[in-house]
């Protein structure tokens, strides 16, 4: 049971790191990124493949963050020309392109068969101690991420990206170039997603393209909407609610008789969807309140 909670904790924290990136991009800057999972995938594959080639994990993690961040650069350039909904479509397309490239480039990624045997973090410690060490490490990285996002949000940079979210042309009229800020925001958010991806790969130890479908992006969106858009506490609380439902519904099978594992998977997604609908109807500002209610 303890091992189970540690496992849930690790996955939840990986999702928190993902939602921190989206909080910066959407909550503060207003960029509708529907392709978050693409950067997550780039991070996962980068670190996994490098680690299997014998690169030390510290460097493979750094490379995951760097490459995911770098991939956001062209997306940032596109965002200079596109507004809200078009940008959303481009990013969604981007993440699907990433997934299809991973699926097709078998020489690099082993295609649909995926990459097995990815080295674990702290493997030499063995068993539950290693698990606990991973949890502590992910927690530490999450806290650094929280510190960075809070620092940005409370700064002149944060003030300006919120101004961009509220009215981009007015920012231009005041002599500031929104593009520069949007690119930086995308790169930082993507780098966070890349690190989350690396943790995921080294924790699960086996990655396949099907783990990187748009549903992952939308789970992160659900988390920040339920928690409260534009708030760091919202990202954390929202992820907690999401995990509670995704994992909690597992236990439902033990209570409700005659439900198979397959049925349960569908019920789980349905339950999360219903929760999201209820939130939008009765608490659109999320549990912690969003940026409009300051």
């Amino acid at each position: 049971m303890e091992a189970y909670f540690i496992a849930i904790g690790i996955i939840a924290l990986i999702y928190v790191i993902l939602s921190l990136g989206l909080t910066l991009q959407y909550g503060l800057t207003g960029l509708i990124n529907f392709g978050h999972v693409g950067f997550f995938a780039i991070g996962a594959y980068t670190s996994a493949l490098l680690a299997l080639k014998g690169v030390p994990l510290v460097l493979s993690f750094a490379a995951a963050a760097a490459l995911a961040g770098l991939a956001a650069w062209p997306i940032g350039l596109v965002s200079l020309r596109l507004r809200d909904d078009y940008f959303a479509i481009v990013t969604l397309g981007f993440s699907e392109v990433v997934r299809i490239v991973i699926t097709s480039e078998r020489w690099l990624t082993n295609g649909v068969q995926g990459v097995p045997g990815i080295p674990r973090l702290y493997d030499s410690l063995g068993g539950s101690v290693a698990q606990l060490a991973v949890l502590v490490t992910v927690l530490a990285v999450t806290l650094v991420g929280v510190w960075i996002i809070r620092r940005i949000a409370g700064s002149p940079f944060g003030r300006l990206i919120e101004a961009i979210r509220d009215n981009e042309e007015a920012v231009q009229a005041l002599g500031k170039d929104p593009a520069r800020f949007k690119i930086q925001v995308l790169v930082v958010g993507a780098a966070l997603a890349g690190i989350a991806g690396a943790f995921y790969a080294h924790y699960i130890t086996y990655i396949v393209p099907d783990q990187f479908i748009p549903l992952v992006t939308f789970y992160v969106w659900m988390a920040i909407i339920m928690g409260g858009v534009g708030r760091v506490s919202g990202a954390i609380v929202g992820t907690a609610i999401l995990m509670l439902f995704l994992e909690g519904s597992r236990f439902l099978r033990d209570i409700v008789p005659g439900v198979s594992e397959v049925d349960m998977a569908s019920v789980r997604i349905g339950a999360v969807g219903l929760l999201l609908v209820l939130f939008i109807m009765y608490r659109p500002q999320g549990l912690m309140g969003d940026y409009t209610k300051r």
């Binding site: 002149p156 101004a163 509220d166 009215n167 042309e169 007015a170 005041l174 940026y291």
Partner: peptide
């Protein structure tokens, strides 16, 4: 075109 979620003070500081 005020930055409507920012306060008056923050609007001016951002400029």
């Amino acid at each position: 075109r005020e930055f409507r979620h920012l306060t008056v003070r923050e609007n001016l500081m951002a400029a």
